[in-house]
């Protein structure tokens, strides 16, 4: 591949610049909500920065919830043995 735009971000200060601008964007989105009168279906939706907070909190719940799920239901890859493809390698010889 001759041109690869992703390599541009390999230098850590460039990646840091992207991250910084992302955080600026988040702050901007947070502040701007104060000035916008939103049309809402429900009362809760109209709360200040409902979407930002809900997004942040729910994402965290998903992460911790899924870790708990793995704690309960996680099993080794060969749990179903030869009755499933979980632990087998994709047969690469054929399709090439």
């Amino acid at each position: 591949m001759k041109f690869n735009p992703y390599l541009f971000f390999e230098k850590s200060n460039r990646l840091r610049a992207v991250l910084f601008s992302f955080i600026v964007l988040c702050v901007g989105l947070f502040i701007i909500d104060f000035f916008v009168k939103r049309y809402t279906y429900f009362e809760i939706e109209g709360l200040y920065n409902f979407y930002s907070i809900y997004g942040f909190v729910m994402f965290s719940i998903i992460i911790f919830g899924s870790r708990f799920l793995r704690f309960l239901l996680g099993r080794p890859e060969n749990f179903y043995d030869n009755k499933a493809v979980d632990s087998e390698d994709y047969p690469t010889t054929r399709e090439k």
Binding site: I23, L25, Y51, Y54, G55, F56, S60, I63, R70, G74
Partner: peptide, 29 residues
């Protein structure tokens, strides 16, 4: 954008805190 960006922010913070579920060879019942 608020919903998505703040969810991504949560991802970023949780990954920095090493709280994301690790990628291991496993399955879930």
């Amino acid at each position: 954008l608020q919903l998505l960006c703040f969810a991504i922010l949560a991802f970023y913070i949780l990954s920095k805190l090493k709280q994301l579920p690790s990628e291991t060879r496993s399955i879930n019942l």
